Amino acid sequence: MPVPNPAALDFLLTRRSRPAKTLTGPAPTRAELEPMLTGAARTPDHGKLEPWRFIVIEKSAMARLAETAEKCGQSNGLDPEQIAKGRAQFDQGHLAVAVIEVQKPSEKIPAIEQTYSAGAVCLALLNAALAAGWGANWLSGWPSHDRAFMTQALDLKDNERIAGFIHIATETSAPPDRPRPDLGAITEWVDT
């Protein structure tokens, strides 16, 4: 007989990301962040490859990442609006965890499963931060897909890429809920 955890289920049924631009200081301390990282590291990981790692970006590093995003955007010939949007999460950020996908050679575990696991880590960290009472948002944007940014800002290796930036800080206001998927439209039941 299953043993329900109604509080956990209620959290999942009502969870809502907090827009990063609405977050303010303080951000979690290292001691406060470690349980969230520990929870995220419990993500399903076929083959126990740990195809991900964390880079914690503290407030003092945000300006450097914003400048790097601007320079990379200019080098890529992006328009000023795209560049501004790419650097905004760092200009406004108080603390972010870059979840880094680390592709590892494996005859048994396909690369796509490693990618799925890294994405699951992003969601697990987001939910851990929200469950701990912080405001949190999972962002990507063009800098997270730009190889020059990955190399210059975070010194990533060729087998690494950014799965997402999880911004965590104090929420200033709870956003209203947004429309959710129609379960009937996205669910198929197979019984024979």
Rank of each mutant, 00 (worst) to 15 (best):
P4N: 09
N5D: 15
A8C: 15
L9Q: 15
L12D: 13
R18C: 14
P19W: 03
K21D: 14
T24M: 15
T24Q: 15
T24D: 15
P26T: 12
P26Q: 11
P28W: 10
A31I: 12
L37R: 04
A41P: 05
R42D: 15
R42K: 14
D45M: 02
H46R: 10
L49P: 10
I57E: 05
I57L: 13
E58W: 09
E58F: 01
A63P: 10
A69F: 00
G73Q: 02
N76Y: 04
G77Y: 00
D79T: 03
P80E: 10
P80F: 01
E81M: 06
Q89H: 06
V97N: 09
A98E: 09
V99P: 02
I100G: 11
I100W: 09
E101F: 05
V102Y: 06
S106E: 08
K108N: 09
I112G: 08
Y116S: 14
V121D: 05
V121S: 03
L125C: 01
L125R: 00
N127V: 04
G133H: 06
P143A: 06
P143K: 03
S144L: 03
D146M: 01
F149A: 07
L154G: 08
K157G: 13
I162H: 02
G164M: 01
H167N: 12
H167K: 07
I168F: 02
I168E: 10
T172F: 04
S173L: 08
A174L: 11
A174E: 13
R178K: 08
G184C: 00
E188S: 13
T192P: 07
